[in-house]
């Protein structure tokens, strides 16, 4: 093993371990991270239940439809709140010593994305306890496929968050981007409502949105293979996987580029 590779692996390991240690240290964060999506799911899901109906899949309730969206939301929120700390950490925190340490910038991006991604994954995993109540039979769920989409999606979203944080270098700017890009991106991913034939523009936006493919992949895994008709704007298993993987690779590359460019 070359010395440089050893240094890089050490850097990845340190950042990964650090985010996990911080997460378990902060109990309130752990509880909040789990309670908030449950509240969201019950309130919005419960409120919409009576009005929601899908002509293509008559028996499908809103609590069931909304569930995969909430799982992806947990991963998204974890990556936003996990990477917004990069801004301060980089100028007045531990990240300074990583930047001047022996590892490369690529290792820095990977380590941070894996750390933040893992935190999101653990939160999502806890929420998956509710799978039977959402209407999915645990025996039918394709757990491998579900894990794959969540892991790759978490790393991709975290790396994207990292790129934004490093590039913007201001918490206010990051908050602005969060409310005009990331949250609407989640709303328009099929998480809250499916694409409708009456709104061509909305449908096009959804198909151009990488998060749509993550949500669709997660939904498909929960059903164990086939999606109920009309629940996804991009109903194609290979395409969901390809875009989710492609997004993660692109996000890590973008973050590495930004991190090299702006020291």
């Amino acid at each position: 093993m070359s010395v440089a590779l050893g240094d890089d692996l050490a850097t990845v390991g340190v950042l990964w371990r650090r985010d996990l240690a911080r997460f378990f240290r902060q109990r309130s964060r752990l509880v909040g991270a789990l309670v908030q999506p449950i509240v969201f799911w019950l309130l919005i899901g419960g409120g919409m239940a009576s009005t929601f109906s899908l002509g293509t899949a008559p028996g499908l309730g809103y609590m069931e439809y909304f569930y995969p969206g909430i799982v992806v939301m947990m991963v998204l929120f974890a990556s936003i709140f996990g990477t917004i700390t990069v801004i301060e950490d980089r100028h007045a925190g531990f990240l300074q010593s990583v930047v001047v340490g022996p590892g490369s910038r690529t290792a820095l991006v990977l380590g941070k994305s894996l750390g933040v991604g893992s935190v999101g994954l653990m939160q999502a995993a806890l929420f998956l306890v509710f799978t039977p109540w959402a209407g999915f039979a645990p025996g039918d769920v394709s757990w491998f496929s579900l894990a794959l989409f969540l892991v790759v999606g978490a790393v991709g979203l975290s790396a994207f968050g990292f790129a934004l944080a490093w590039w913007l270098d201001s918490s206010q700017a990051y908050h602005a981007v969060m409310s005009i890009l990331l949250l609407p991106g989640w709303v328009l991913s099929g998480a809250m409502f499916p694409a409708s034939a009456d709104h061509a523009v909305l449908g096009a936006i959804m198909r151009a949105n990488p998060m749509t493919y993550i949500v669709s992949g997660v939904r498909r895994a929960l059903y164990g293979g086939d999606l109920p008709a009309g629940t996804s704007a991009v109903d194609s298993a290979p395409l969901e996987l390809a875009v989710t993987l492609g997004f993660a690779v692109a996000a890590v590359s973008l973050a590495t580029f930004v991190c090299h460019k702006r020291r």
Binding site: R18, G101, P102
Partner: peptide, 30 residues
């Protein structure tokens, strides 16, 4: 690899213990 750096701004993780901070930096340098 051979530099020790003391920044003007803090560079320790305040949510971790003193020992954890030292051990993480040690791991960074293998």
């Amino acid at each position: 690899r051979r530099l020790g750096v003391v920044f003007q701004n803090p560079s320790v993780d305040i949510t971790l213990t003193c020992r954890e901070n030292l051990l993480l930096t040690a791991a960074l340098h293998r």
